[in-house]
Computed example of a mutant assay.
Amino acid sequence: MKKFLHTKLLGLSLLGFSAFSQAMPVEVTFNDLSHPEANRFLEQTFEVFLNTPSELDKQLSDDFVQVFGGGINDRTEFLAHSTVLSDSLLGAKIHFEDVNVDSDGVISEIHTIALTKKDGSEAVLRFLAFYYFKDGKLTKIDELNTLVKGSSEDSDIGSRTE
């Protein structure tokens, strides 16, 4: 639980950043309200991730990795992923179906995200993700996703760096 308190502090620091970023509307809803601090962290993290990639850098550990299916984005690639999405999207609707926090502060969740791209097309993806922390910073996101709706070209949108 001690690590989760670091997560809570991280989430509060993200709140300050998200207040200044209104580049795209990010609508977040939750079915599971049993972990309000984790929910707040997720909402604020996605707001920063999709709207303020330059601020995301401060929230990641030096050895951060995003693990997805059979691939890995290192810290630099994950920041590029955030920038690519920020530059190519008009909006996002994220619905968290389930959120849990284990005794070590690891957050696990299931969410569906509906994305509206700048070309007017849409993509819907479903994710299962785990968030790991070290010294109050996000150190790893381990996730699986599947394209529910959209062009087959969007099958990599959950990890795209270009």
Score class of each variant (00 low, 15 high):
residue 130 F to I: 07
residue 120 G to L: 02
residue 90 L to V: 05
residue 123 A to T: 05
residue 88 S to C: 14
residue 95 H to A: 06
residue 120 G to T: 10
residue 123 A to L: 06
residue 99 V to K: 04
residue 133 F to S: 05
residue 132 Y to T: 10
residue 99 V to L: 03
residue 113 I to D: 03
residue 109 E to G: 10
residue 133 F to H: 00
residue 100 N to R: 02
residue 122 E to Y: 08
residue 97 E to K: 13
residue 88 S to L: 15
residue 89 L to Y: 10
residue 109 E to I: 03
residue 131 Y to C: 02
residue 111 H to S: 12
residue 115 L to W: 04
residue 119 D to Q: 11
residue 114 A to C: 02
residue 108 S to K: 13
residue 131 Y to S: 07
residue 87 D to T: 15
residue 129 A to Q: 07
residue 106 V to S: 05
residue 103 S to F: 15
residue 111 H to Y: 15
residue 87 D to K: 14
residue 118 K to V: 14
residue 113 I to T: 13
residue 95 H to V: 03
residue 112 T to W: 08
residue 99 V to H: 02
residue 96 F to M: 03
residue 125 L to D: 08
residue 101 V to M: 02
residue 125 L to N: 13
residue 133 F to E: 08
residue 108 S to E: 15
residue 105 G to N: 02
residue 131 Y to I: 05
residue 99 V to F: 06
residue 117 K to S: 13
residue 121 S to A: 15
residue 108 S to D: 15
residue 105 G to P: 01
residue 104 D to N: 07
residue 133 F to M: 04
residue 110 I to M: 09
residue 91 G to H: 02
residue 129 A to L: 01
residue 122 E to C: 08
residue 87 D to A: 15
residue 128 L to G: 12
residue 119 D to E: 09
residue 124 V to F: 03
residue 107 I to T: 03
residue 89 L to N: 06
residue 128 L to C: 12
residue 130 F to G: 06
residue 96 F to S: 01
residue 93 K to E: 09
residue 127 F to Y: 09
residue 87 D to P: 11
residue 126 R to P: 01
residue 124 V to Y: 07
residue 129 A to V: 00
residue 112 T to G: 10
residue 96 F to G: 01
residue 100 N to H: 02
residue 117 K to W: 14
residue 122 E to I: 10
residue 94 I to S: 06
residue 84 V to A: 15
residue 125 L to V: 11
residue 93 K to L: 09
residue 98 D to I: 00
residue 108 S to P: 11
residue 96 F to N: 07
residue 108 S to I: 05
residue 127 F to G: 04
residue 116 T to C: 09
residue 124 V to W: 10
residue 86 S to I: 11
residue 102 D to L: 01
residue 94 I to T: 01
residue 126 R to W: 00
residue 127 F to I: 01
residue 94 I to W: 09
residue 85 L to A: 14
residue 102 D to P: 01
residue 101 V to E: 02
residue 111 H to T: 14
residue 108 S to M: 14
residue 88 S to Q: 14
residue 111 H to G: 13
residue 109 E to Y: 10
